[in-house]
Design a protein around this nucleic acid. Structure first.
Length: 486
RNA sequence: GGCGCGUUCGUCUAGCGGCCUAGGACGCUGCCCUCUCAAGGCAGAGAUCAGGGGUUCAAAUCCCCUACGCGCCA
């Protein structure tokens, strides 16, 4: 048996596309809150839009949530399997339930059939606007039996509307915004069952949130306006409404709602760009929520412990990929070397660095470069030159073409052929001595050396890099670079 | 158009009437460290708290109006 006071949250996506950043944050906050309270997190698929819902979308959403490291206690496991005691968590498999309650409301006179056509509705809306009323006037509520028979005879298929009170106000007690009051006479009688017989979003959502014993509905701002109607539905059905918390939305850099034209918006895209799930989670956790210390970095358990609804922001937040990237770098640096390698595996494979190539071990080169990784895809990029010689970058090329460099490289090649042991300290000593002998400044030797050997002007600490690269590679690259300078 | 929500450095935010000449983080600039690049350390620029009225001895904080942005009705 479930405990009556149990905290239960839910995320209820429509499977009409991938999980985007906004949805991911809503999921995260529901998940965090459930975990924070020791409650349950439920996933429900709102697939009543039959034409736009797809199995692929369901899978993409499940994959996204799982990738982000969030788990759900009840809901679909894939398109066929589900877990949890509430029957199905796909709305399309729960149709009889909605119909049952529609019948109940109809029988109690709390809902009514509406026969209006699109055109008629349009006309009603027009006059309603002029008269400052709700955009549906309850036209069909006032129908006589004769009129109803008439419509039926015409073969009209009715929708079902929920009857809103004419007077008073409905207060939405919102955990983030406080009490928000709506005048009932301005609320229209919402359709709860479409002419096709399927439930509308607002109704299915009420029925399911109640049936699934959801205690806290944490969702996007865009649903706030529908909430008074939903609250009335709860009351009409004799149910206690859940607690509500409406999250502000996420904006793109130009201040409009985050969308595809701002670049990547899908969680999976961020994964594929080499972001770490824990960094995305941390960043999203902070986008619209903060604790009083303005703490930035949260270990997973720490976020769960700290998260609470009152800390949620009322105003919309702009998504900042730059800060996300910084945060990702923070997490990249904290990872153990073997973890960096295993997490970067897809990127290493794509770059042809896995299976391992001849040369130093990945552990060695990754350890050497780790402090510079911001994204997983940086791993192959920064490490590649240990395994493959690439043409020098323009900056490196410039360094190599400076006067006298050829002699320096040849001299170094000679030196490094014999310098022993071929390790960090000894190499540094040998090369510094080489500088002194030739009366060269350290920089005049170090920079060309780095450029010749790695093809770059920046990289890991020089002597350790040489050691790891190995005598053979170092010497041959020096000779090769010198040869190209003739 | 109606209703609703929102408005603190470029961005994310702290702030719940005196501790605010507004704090932190990202980004930016400079310095230090240094074989480069990062990382790190230090310093700095950056917000008349959307604007205007109140209330109060005292307001970013409470109230009202306006503007702008966003959402829902669509």
């Amino acid at each position: 048996m479930t405990d009556n006071n149990e905290i239960r949250t839910r995320f209820a996506p429509s499977p009409t596309g991938y999980l985007h950043i906004g949805g991911a944050r809503t999921t995260l906050y529901n998940w965090l809150y459930a975990r924070h309270c020791g409650g349950k997190f439920v996933l429900r698929i709102e697939d009543t839009d039959e034409v736009r819902s797809t199995a692929d979308s369901v899978q993409a959403i499940l994959d996204s949530i799982s990738w982000m490291g969030m788990d759900w206690d009840e809901g679909p496991l894939d398109f066929e399997h589900e877990k949890g005691p509430m029957g199905s968590y796909y709305q399309m498999k729960r149709l009889p339930l909605y119909q049952q309650y529609v019948r109940q409301l109809l029988a109690e006179g709390k809902a009514y059939y509406c026969y209006c056509s699109k055109e008629e509705l349009e006309a009603i809306r027009h006059s309603a606007q002029a008269e400052q009323r709700a955009s549906y006037d309850g036209h069909c509520y006032k129908l006589t039996d004769a009129q109803k028979r008439q419509y039926e005879a015409e073969g009209r298929k009715p929708a079902v509307r929920f009857r809103m009170p004419d007077e008073g106000a409905t207060v939405v007690p919102d955990l983030i915004r406080g009490d928000v009051s709506f005048e009932n006479r301005l609320q229209q009688d919402l359709v709860i069952q479409k002419t096709t017989g399927g439930p509308t979003y607002n109704f299915a959502c009420v029925v399911d949130d109640h049936a699934m014993r959801i205690s806290h509905v944490i969702r996007g701002d865009e649903h706030l306006s529908n909430t008074p109607a939903q609250i009335q539905m709860y009351r009409a059905l004799g149910w206690e409404p859940p607690k509500f918390a409406h999250l502000s939305m996420i904006l793109g850099p130009d201040g409009t709602k985050l969308s595809k034209r701002h670049g990547a918006t899908s969680v999976l895209e961020y994964r594929d760009q080499g972001f770490l799930a824990e960094a995305l989670r941390n960043y999203l956790g902070l986008l619209g929520w903060a604790n009083t210390e303005s703490q930035q970095l949260f270990a997973p358990e720490e976020l769960i412990r700290a998260f609470d609804l009152p800390g949620c922001q009322k105003n919309p937040a702009t998504f900042d990929p730059v800060k996300l990237t910084w945060m990702n770098g923070e997490y990249m640096r904290k990872l153990a070397v073997p973890d960096v390698i295993s997490r970067a595996e897809p990127f290493l494979m794509a770059a042809g660095l896995l299976p391992v190539r001849p040369g130093p071990t990945l552990e060695k080169v990754v350890a050497l470069e780790q402090e510079k990784f911001k994204l997983l895809k940086d791993v192959p990029e920064r490490v590649d030159f240990f395994y493959r010689e690439a043409p020098p970058t323009p900056q490196a090329d410039k360094v190599l073409r400076a006067p006298g460099v050829k002699d320096v490289l040849l001299g170094l090649a000679e030196l490094l052929q014999v310098c022993a042991p071929f390790e960090d300290k000894a190499l540094e000593a040998g090369i510094r001595q080489f500088c002194a002998q030739r009366g060269l400044k350290a920089g005049a030797v170090f920079h060309p050396l780095r450029a010749a050997v790695s093809g770059r002007t920046e990289g890991p600490t020089l002597f350790l890099m040489l050691e790891i690269m190995g005598r053979g590679t170092v010497v041959s690259r020096l000779q090769g670079a010198a040869a190209k300078l003739s």
